[in-house]
């Protein structure tokens, strides 16, 4: 039971970050039907910028929380600029091209950004200075750190802010209208180029914060971290129904929980001794013969992706297709 609650806490923390990244995928897909494979690299750049700035600030004697906040404040504008630039330079010229062209371009942009990051920050793993004091809270048999609580709270605030933007503001209404019918939106006076650019920039800003949180949580950042994180967040977006904003939030949290629970139990469940079929010499005296350890954690996201694609391709909250228009 303790494992369950603990993994649930870990899963929700991780899932909240996935959800924030997944929103970037889903918003861009919703508006221009592009899977922006480079979105994960924006998360990575956010983490790298923060990891460059934070040690300097910490060394200057700033309190840790202020240093991290300022690190995020530097990462956000950099990522917004990256998001804007990729839309303007790579995707906008291909807006009328067959759909495969921008998709392949997105993979290209991802490779370019990754290698730029490698040139700037080297191949090495950047370590996050252990400046944030470890504060823990006990809760229903599980422990939650201060960082985890902060991550969940910040992600919840960002998601609430985005929901407000999309469903309650003039820009959000224009974004949804553009997603449904760009030509008619233009006839209403919407400059769709600006709305699309705004979508990229908003997604990138959230990705930057996600990168800082992800790095702070694991204490490391590297130029390759964006690929796997990006793919998982993409899986979360597909799980929720790509193009659907509440779906991305739900998909992210669910994916995080599935992954954490999977990692928590897979060792136990694939212990052949537990099922009485392990080799006798290993199982003697309560020994273990574990087929898959928790290092298989990454597998779950993709198992979920495959299951969704096979059984419910439109995702949990996916938009129904073929509505009358």
């Amino acid at each position: 039971m303790d494992t369950f609650v603990q993994q649930l806490v870990n899963g929700v923390t991780l899932g909240a970050v996935y959800a924030v990244v997944a929103l970037g995928y889903t918003m861009v897909y919703g508006i221009i039907q592009l899977i922006n494979f480079a979105h994960g690299e924006v998360v990575m750049i956010g983490a790298m910028v923060a990891f460059t700035v934070i040690p300097i600030l910490a060394a200057a004697g700033l309190p840790p929380v202020v240093a991290v906040a300022l690190g995020a404040a530097c990462a956000v504008p950099v990522c917004m600029a990256v998001g804007y630039a990729m839309e303007r330079l790579a995707y906008r010229p291909l807006r009328r091209a067959p759909r495969l062209a921008p998709l392949i371009t997105a993979i290209g942009v991802s490779i370019v950004l990754q290698h730029l990051a490698m040139m700037i920050w080297s191949r090495n793993v950047l370590a996050f200075p252990q400046i944030i004091p470890l504060v823990t809270f006990s809760f229903a048999g599980a422990t939650m750190t201060g960082v985890q609580i902060a991550i969940v709270a910040i992600c919840a605030a960002m998601m609430a802010g985005l929901a407000w933007l999309v469903y309650r503001t003039r820009l959000g209404r224009a974004m949804r209208a553009t997603a449904q019918n760009p030509q008619v939106a233009a006839l209403m006076g919407v400059d769709i180029d600006r709305v699309i650019a705004a979508t990229f920039v908003i997604g990138a800003a959230m990705a930057a914060v996600a990168g800082v949180m992800f790095g702070t949580y694991y204490g490391v950042a590297q130029y390759t971290m964006g690929s796997i994180l990006g793919l998982k967040a993409f899986s979360a977006a597909v799980l929720g129904g790509i193009g659907n904003v509440p779906g991305a939030m739900l998909g992210g949290i669910l994916l995080g929980v599935v992954e954490a629970l999977g990692a928590g139990y897979i060792g136990d469940l694939t212990d052949l001794c537990r099922w009485g079929i392990g080799p006798a010499e290993r199982c003697a005296d309560g020994g273990h013969f574990v087929l898959f350890g928790s290092n298989y954690q990454d597998v779950f996201a993709f198992v979920v992706l495959i299951l969704v694609l096979v059984f419910r391709p439109s995702g949990l909250l996916g938009e129904r297709v073929g509505e009358r228009a």
Binding site: A177, Q180, V184, A325
Partner: peptide, 10 residues
């Protein structure tokens, strides 16, 4: 526009 062009999910 032709075909009305309403936004169906708004």
């Amino acid at each position: 526009p032709e075909g009305r062009g309403i936004f169906p999910r708004l």
